[in-house]
């Protein structure tokens, strides 16, 4: 997300408008490669900006408090809960589930979710998939998780993505339909594909 005019800069004279409609800011969002110039209520979260202003409804509102993961998108390549990120504070490129396919072909994780039936109602699915995309990058970068054995801490090299590792690393995304084992299968499949 880029910003041009801002709500205010630290000179205290910002360009924010504190008019009768409440404070708003002009915000430039770069989402899935497209630049959007918007004037947004400062209260608008990235999630609501996507859903209500850009008609990108792939990211879901499950709890609106960072407790379910349905709103997960990638900001600057990192997975985040878009419901807790104020759009006005967001200044890196955003990728949502709508932006994962390339040249009309689904992302390998999207294909894997279909092949493994790693979804039922589908409401958590975009968040699961965005989360999994980042998971593979994090593991490739060697980031540890809660279940990574401390003494297996390899500062260099990719993390060993066992099923336990995938389960832990996907635990920020609730699925009430209970697709977890299939989600783990799908992530493992996509992981095999990417390391192959």
């Amino acid at each position: 997300m880029d910003r041009e005019g801002t709500a205010g800069r630290d000179d205290g004279r910002g360009e924010g408008r504190d008019g009768p409609e409440g404070p708003t800011s002009s915000v430039t969002l770069r989402v899935n490669g497209t630049v959007h110039a918007l004037r947004l209520d400062n209260r608008t979260t990235l999630l609501d900006a996507l859903r209500e202003h850009l008609d990108l409804t792939g990211a879901k509102k499950g709890c609106d408090h960072g407790q379910c993961g349905a709103c997960t998108v990638l900001v600057g390549g990192r997975r985040v809960n878009s419901c807790l990120l104020l759009a006005v504070a967001c200044d890196e490129p955003v990728t949502t589930v709508e932006g994962l396919a390339r040249d009309g072909r689904l992302h390998p994780l999207q294909e894997a979710f279909v092949a493994r039936d790693a979804l039922q109602c589908g409401y958590c699915t975009p968040g699961q998939i965005c989360s999994a995309v980042a998971l593979l990058d994090e593991a490739a970068a060697g980031h540890p998780s809660h279940v990574t054995p401390p003494h297996a801490a390899r500062a260099e090299g990719a993390a060993d993505l066992t099923r336990d590792e995938i389960r832990e690393r996907m635990s920020g995304n609730l699925c009430r339909c209970g697709a977890y084992p299939h989600i783990v299968d799908a992530v493992a499949d996509a992981h095999r594909e990417t390391v192959r």
């Binding site: 998971l135 980031h143 540890p144 401390p150 801490a153 995304n173």
Partner: peptide
């Protein structure tokens, strides 16, 4: 911080505590 090599090697308690909190998405922010 949790993934930082110096934290993992010298202060495992800190890395472990961080990784046991919240979710990957929250920890990223």
């Amino acid at each position: 911080l949790a993934a930082h090599p110096l934290v993992r090697s010298r202060y495992p308690v800190l890395s472990q505590a961080l990784l046991s909190g919240a979710s990957p998405q929250l920890r990223n922010v």
